[in-house]
Design a protein around this nucleic acid. Structure first.
Lengths: 151, 151
DNA sequence: CTCTCTGCAAAATGTTTGCACACTC
DNA sequence: GAGTGTGCAAACATTTTGCAGAGAG
């Protein structure tokens, strides 16, 4: 499997090396459903690979982000969160529901048809009007989750 | 004018005091079109009110955010950015276009009818399905601005 | 006059960087 | 073997906190 990963080929193709650490990090990311911070990943790694430092996690995430393999989100609870991009992960296209109290993040993939119609139109219009090349969009809803109780 | 501000009344109503610093900060925010960081506000303030510390800026912004007077955004260039909420500012409902290279933020208010239709449906559906009380939404497009050149 | 608000300095947090060694290709 | 990648420790930047004094109501 060492040389069969899509992301690995992508990195190699750009002249980067495939290392144990990089594999371990992508592996963690592809086996989780949650949105992990650099520290989360570091600790998850620590059980099996105690010799991978937090620095490497940060450097790897940066590299992966620059190569379109992970997405970085800053939802506002201090630390940035990461997940594999649609192209390299196994989550469907989705957006986020973020609880203002506990910080829980819920992925949702509902209503994507409606969204698509809206986005397509908007992206085209905005790109033209502001001469902006749009690469990505982010739609998030903030509020209070069931557990934290409505107010 | 000291006691006539909507935001001031809101604060007072909640038992908080109206101070020079708080007025100055809201004043700066209501006279700018850009998205300012705490430090930006601190320096903008410094000309007229050199005695207001950065700590106060942070504490005030936190208070204002908790009372729904300002919105805090973390777009990912390190520092958080603030702007008055729709209810207390004078910007129309809008969203953001963020340049990945230079960090420029463009507000846009176009296509709001399409958005409204999509959002209304989605919010209702999500709220119901995930038992989530939605307070706010955020739609952002990321890409490369005209100045930074498309790629 | 009471109690909140503030400035200052110090701490805490998340992230980045320099350097010598380790490992991939 | 050449050159990228890594761990460690230290540097950094932003934001938060403790405390004694200042100011609002």
């Amino acid at each position: 499997m060492r040389h069969g990963h899509k992301w690995g080929n992508k990195l190699r193709g750009c002249g980067f090396r495939l290392t144990i650490g990089r594999e371990a990090i992508v592996d963690i990311l592809s086996h989780t459903n949650s949105h992990m911070s650099a520290e989360d990943i570091f600790f998850a790694l620590h059980a099996d690979s105690p010799n991978i430092g937090l620095t490497t996690v940060y450097r790897t995430l940066e590299l992966l982000e620059k190569n379109g393999i992970v997405s970085k989100y800053e939802f506002g609870h201090g630390r940035a969160k990461f997940e594999l991009t649609e192209a390299y992960g196994n989550k469907p296209h989705h957006h986020h529901l973020i609880c203002r109290k506990c910080g829980t993040i819920i992925d949702y993939s509902d209503f994507m048809e409606d969204e698509l119609a809206y986005l397509k139109k908007t992206e085209a219009g905005l790109g033209k009007k502001y001469k902006f090349t749009i690469h990505q969009h982010s739609i998030s809803f903030f509020g209070i989750c069931e557990k934290c109780g409505a107010s």
